[in-house]
């Protein structure tokens, strides 16, 4: 816990310094190519950008601790007001994609591991690996071609504003969510399958079978719990990616989440907005690995004993 916090703080400071070292700041972003040196200097004076790095780092850290994420000179808006609705949208997208991908991946992995000869299982496995290997924009384009043009079920491009209500957003979430789910599905499915393949040869499974335990019970009570812990780690990594790595998918579907904002902010060179997005990403990664450790400890009784 303490280690995670320490890692977060040091990475946050590094990100601040790294982004600060990039050529350009809020004022050059605002004034663009019309910014004469005099105007830029005036703007910097006004927004206290002339202070030395260490002073600005201190001010910024103080503000963040007091809940103030800063101010975007380029967008003339509080950063929190820009970023928070986008975090909500991305979180909704991540939840829908996670619900599509993870439960089905666990079931598929369990069944494909148990019945490796099955034709349907093999087909699902191949499809999953293909989806995992192709880049998101290719999957998104293929899904778009199929589900928005050839069989028009879903709208292809999102046209709702970033602060739309949940109900307004919902019809536009399926296509990007399906894309993201297709990308992550095979990771946990393959981890699950690999686990089941080795575990079902272990003595405790054999002894359950020899006792005359029904196949269904063996699968659900003996094999599933033993195969789950490694899958939790895979899911944690993928869940973190769903919250922070969705740049391309959001850009393809014009979905107004954090990834889309990141691309916009980077092409505007709006460093005030880039920084909290980077921090959010770091925070999500560290939190997810912490949660994964805790869940694995709950699922695996051996680790609990080991600790006490």
């Amino acid at each position: 816990m303490l280690f995670t916090l320490g890692a977060f703080v040091s990475l946050a400071v590094l990100s601040f310094l790294g982004i600060d070292a990039l050529p350009g700041d809020g004022c050059t972003a605002l004034l663009g190519r019309f910014g004469t040196p005099a105007k830029v200097a005036e703007c910097r004076e006004e927004h206290q950008l002339t202070d030395p790095v260490i002073v600005r780092l201190g001010n910024w850290a103080n503000d963040v601790v007091h809940g103030d994420l800063g101010y975007s000179i380029k967008r003339d808006e509080q950063v929190a007001q820009i970023v928070l609705p986008r975090i909500r949208n991305t979180a909704m997208l991540a939840v829908v994609a996670a619900l599509m991908a993870f439960p089905s991946a666990i079931v598929a992995g369990l069944l494909i591991g148990r019945y490796p000869q099955s034709r349907i299982g093999r087909a699902i496995n191949t499809l999953g690996v293909v989806a995992m290997t192709l880049p998101e924009f290719v999957i998104a384009t293929i899904l778009w071609l199929v589900f928005s043009i050839w069989i028009p079920i879903f709208p292809g491009v999102t046209v709702v504003p970033s602060n739309a209500t949940v109900v307004e957003l919902l019809p536009h979430i399926w296509m990007p969510a399906l894309t993201l789910a297709a990308v992550v599905f095979a990771h946990s499915m393959r981890t699950m399958k690999a686990g089941v393949t080795t575990i079902q040869l272990m003595p405790f499974v054999e002894s359950a079978r020899l006792r005359g335990t029904k196949e269904r019970v063996t699968l659900l009570r003996h094999i599933l719990p033993a195969a789950l812990p490694p899958v939790v780690n895979t899911i944690a990594v993928d869940a973190a990616w769903l919250l922070t790595g969705t740049f391309v998918t959001e850009a393809v579907f014009n979905y107004r989440g954090l990834g889309r904002l990141a691309i916009d902010a980077i092409s505007d060179r709006d460093t005030a907005v880039i920084l909290p997005i980077v921090l959010f990403g770091l925070g999500v990664y560290l939190t997810m690995s912490l949660i994964a450790d805790m869940v694995v400890r709950l699922l695996d009784p051996r680790l609990k004993q080991h600790r006490s």
Partner: peptide, 15 residues
Amino acid sequence: LAVPTLILLLLIASF
């Protein structure tokens, strides 16, 4: 390994 790959690439490519 913890450095977010794509955002760093985007930053470098943009700046």
